[in-house]
C-alpha cells in the first residue's frame, strides 16, 4: 500500500530493519539501525514486530506527504517534527491522514531519528533483511538512500494501534557527553600501558568524519606497542580500531566486514547507540567493564521491550 510520497529526502534517509546477520563471511556488513533501541521502540509504538523496516534519518529529516490514514511513531534524535505545520510529538503513536504533511528538520539532540509506520515498510528482503546497504546496493529502495518522488509502501496492518504514549522513563535523551562502556581487546595487548591509560582516561571528541560506517574521534594519541597493523580479520559492531595516528575510530552498522588495524576495545551492545547518537563535537569517554556487566545491560534492554509490550498493549 502506498503510504508516503517523499517530498524532500533529508540528508541521508534509508530504510532499516534490525539488519542482515549471516553474510559477514561473504563480505557484507550487517547494516541495520545505528540506534536499535530507538528503531525497536518506534516499531513497538506503531504496533509492529520489532524487526519491521522503518525510516532512519540522519542529521536532517525528510518531508513526507501522507497518502493514506495510518499510525506512525517517531523516536531517536529530536528533529523538530511538524505535522501540517504544528509540533508533532515523538515517542508516541500518532494518527496521520491522507494529505497530511510530515516535516522533519535538523537534529537538535542526537543524530538518527526513526519513523515507523503501522504494518512496517514494504520492500523486498534481500538476504533476509530489508536494511539498505548502499555499498552492496541492496535492501531498501534500490539499495540507495531515499530521493524526492520516491513512494514508500507499507504492509497492511492487522488493525491500527491507538495513539499510545511511552512512559518518560523509556524515552532516550542524548547528552553532549557520553560514557561508553567497553570490553577490552581483542588487541589491547598491542598497546603500551601508557596507551591503555590514555584510552581509558581521556575525553575524545567526535570529528566531522562520521557516517554509518564509523565515527572518527579526536583527542590524545593512543600509543601502540609496535605498529597499528594486524593480519586482516573480522570486526564486530562497536569495535574501536586505532590506526597509526593513534586516534580511535568506532566501527558501526555499515563497517567493512574485515579490517587490518588493531582494535583496543569493543563498545558493549547496550552503549553502541549512545555513540551513534553523539554527533560531531560531542564528547565520548571509555570505561572498561567485564562481560557479565555487558550481558546484564543487554538483558535489561531486552526486558524493557517485554515490559512495554505488556504495559502498552495488554488490557
Amino acid at each position: 500500500m502506498q503510504t508516503f510520497k517523499v517530498v524532500k529526502p533529508g540528508l541521508f534517509t534509508t530504510i532499516q530493519d534490525l539488519g542482515r546477520p549471516g553474510y559477514q563471511r561473504f563480505g557484507l556488513p550487517t547494516a541495520g539501525p545505528m540506534d536499535s533501541y530507538s528503531l525497536r521502540m518506534a516499531n513497538l509504538l506503531a504496533g509492529n514486530d520489532l524487526n519491521a523496516a522503518a525510516l532512519e534519518m540522519a542529521f536532517a529529516g525528510a518531508t513526507l506527504e501522507v497518502m493514506r490514514q495510518t499510525v506512525v511513531a517517531l523516536t531517536g534524535a529530536s528533529m523538530q517534527a511538524a505535522l501540517n505545520g504544528a509540533n508533532m510529538p515523538a515517542w508516541q503513536g500518532v494518527r496521520v491522514r491522507e494529505g497530511d504533511r510530515l516535516e522533519l528538520g535538523s537534529a537538535v539532540e542526537g543524530v538518527y531519528s526513526y519513523l515507523a509506520v503501522a504494518g512496517g515498510i514494504d520492500v523486498p528482503p534481500v538476504f533476509g533483511s530489508r536494511s539498505t546497504d548502499v555499498l552492496a546496493s541492496i535492501g531498501g529502495i534500490e539499495g540507495r538512500p531515499l530521493k524526492s518522488g520516491d513512494i514508500v509502501e507499507t504492509y497492511a496492518p492487522e488493525d491500527l494501534p491507538d495513539e499510545i504514549m511511552l512512559k518518560q522513563d523509556f524515552i532516550s535523551s542524548f547528552p553532549p557527553k557520553t560514557l561508553a562502556r567497553v570490553i577490552m581487546g581483542p588487541q589491547d595487548k598491542r598497546f603500551t600501558a601508557a596507551g591503555l591509560d590514555t584510552f581509558l582516561n581521556s575525553i575524545y571528541k567526535v570529528t566531522v568524519n562520521v557516517n554509518r560506517i564509523g565515527y572518527k574521534l579526536e583527542g590524545p594519541q593512543i600509543e601502540h606497542l609496535e605498529g597499528a597493523d594486524i593480519i586482516t580479520e573480522g570486526q564486530t559492531p562497536g569495535a574501536i580500531q586505532v590506526p597509526r595516528d593513534g586516534r580511535p575510530i568506532i566501527l558501526l552498522a555499515d563497517r567493512g566486514s574485515v579490517g587490518g588495524y588493531t582494535k583496543i576495545a569493543v563498545v558493549i551492545s547496550a552503549d553502541i547507540r549512545k555513540v551513534a547518537q553523539s554527533g560531531p563535537g560531542k564528547e565520548i569517554s571509555f570505561q572498561a567493564v567485564d562481560l557479565e556487566t555487558a550481558r546484564r545491560a543487554y538483558r535489561e534492554e531486552e526486558a524493557i521491550f517485554m515490559l512495554n509490550r505488556r504495559l502498552l498493549f495488554e488490557p
Binding site: 553474510y23 593480519i231 586482516t232
Partner: peptide
C-alpha cells in the same frame, strides 16, 4: 549461534548473549 567469520588466521563466532 548467529554466524561465523573466518579470516587468514582467526575465526570470529557471533552469538546471542540472551
Amino acid at each position: 549461534l548467529i554466524e561465523y567469520q573466518p579470516s587468514y588466521s582467526c575465526l570470529i563466532v557471533h552469538y546471542d548473549p540472551m
